[in-house]
Each structure stands twice: as structure tokens, then as C-alpha cells.
């Protein structure tokens, strides 16, 4: 990867900065203030608008969109992922601070959905990123998304939402899978 040092994880972080005596309190608090990185990857992002605005008003459950991955807790994969997007998604995910959670919307991340035979859309997201909650649908309605977030909150509350730990522990496995489809880790400069 060489000069892409700034973009992607090169090695496992030495210290996991989560746990300790206040863990339970931390979990309780975290579950009630989930900040979601405002990044829509597929058609599902259209369902996020009513979810986070006044119709379903996810903010009353402590969820809101933030514009930068560094402040976010949750990454929503909202539908199909192309190889090109996957590279950006990995970059976004690795920039987020632990603990961090991934929610996958729709059929596409599970087994390809209607893009199962596409030359450019991945079929199984769990090969490339650790996903905590899967919500199927095409696309899931805001109610289903909120049901998924409720499950995520329960998982965080009980300390079971540890996808981010798995990612760090199995970084080599994930990297290997990612490298199978992403040959070139250079990010282009968008100057055209």
C-alpha cells in the first residue's frame, strides 16, 4: 500500500480503547446516542431521508446524521455496493473511531439482491466488512430501519455489537477478501 498510508489501516491498532470499569455505563449511553455517517451508497439512502427527518424523526431515539466519519458511530450500507464504492466505504469505515457499528439495508448486501449477476456489484458484504445488523427488504421501509436500529441498540446495551473488534482481530482475513476484488488501493485525484 505504501503511500496510501493515510487512507487505510496498515496494521492492527495496538491498543483497543474500549472497556474498563465504565463499560456498562458507556454502552448504555452509546446505545442512546447513535450518530450515523451521512453516506448513502445505494437506493436505500432514499429511505434514510424520512427516517431521519420529521416523519419518523429518528433523533428522538438519539440518532442523527453527521457529515464526517470521525464523529460517527454507525455506518449504514444502504443497498448495493459496487467495487468502486466499496473502496470508499472501507476508507470511511476505517476512519471511524471505535466502537463503530455497521448496519446493512436491503437484500443486496446479503446475497446480491437483484444485482446478483452484475459485473460490478458485490454479492456478500460480510466478506469485506463486519456487519452488526442486517435488515432485508427492497428497500426496507423506515419502520424496518428503525426496528433494525432498535435491535442494534439492544446489542450495544448487552455488549454484543462487537463487529469492530472482529474487524481488527481478523484484519488480515478481511484484507485478503478485499484485495481479491480491489487490486489498486490508490485513490484517484478528482481534478476533471
Amino acid at each position: 500500500m505504501g503511500k496510501d498510508k493515510n487512507y487505510f489501516l496498515n496494521e492492527k491498532p495496538e491498543k483497543m480503547t474500549y472497556g474498563g470499569v465504565f463499560r456498562k455505563i458507556n454502552d448504555w449511553a452509546r446505545a442512546r446516542s447513535l450518530w450515523v455517517v451521512a453516506y448513502g451508497t445505494g437506493c436505500g439512502s432514499i429511505e434514510l431521508r424520512p427516517t431521519f427527518t420529521s416523519r419518523f424523526d429518528a433523533e428522538r431515539l438519539g440518532m442523527r446524521m453527521v457529515g464526517t466519519p470521525r464523529q460517527a458511530d454507525v455506518l449504514i450500507i444502504s443497498g448495493y455496493l459496487t467495487v468502486k464504492t466499496l473502496k470508499r466505504v472501507i476508507r470511511v469505515y476505517e476512519q471511524m473511531q471505535s466502537p463503530k457499528y455497521v448496519v446493512a439495508l436491503g437484500a443486496c448486501p446479503i446475497n446480491g439482491g437483484m444485482y446478483y449477476d452484475s459485473y460490478n456489484a458485490i454479492n456478500r458484504l460480510d466478506l469485506y466488512l463486519p456487519v452488526d445488523v442486517w435488515i432485508t427488504g427492497c428497500m426496507p421501509r423506515p419502520e424496518a430501519i428503525l426496528a433494525g436500529f432498535k435491535r442494534l441498540q439492544e446489542l450495544i446495551d448487552s455488549g454484543k455489537a462487537d463487529g469492530w473488534k472482529k474487524y481488527i482481530e481478523n484484519l488480515d482475513w478481511y484484507r485478503e477478501n478485499q484485495r481479491k476484488i480491489i487490486k489498486n488501493w490508490r485513490m484517484p485525484n478528482y481534478n476533471w
Binding site: I110, G112, Y116, S118, A121, R124
Partner: peptide, 21 residues
Amino acid sequence: PPMRRDFDTLKYSMEKFGERE
């Protein structure tokens, strides 16, 4: 190039991206 008609997109997808079952 993938839009050529002799490109088998299903085969390519299954080989490269796999499927669950």
C-alpha cells in the same frame, strides 16, 4: 469490457464475488 455481449456477467459475478449458498 463488460458491455460486450460475449461477456458472461453471471459467471464473472459468481467467480469474483461469490454467493452465499
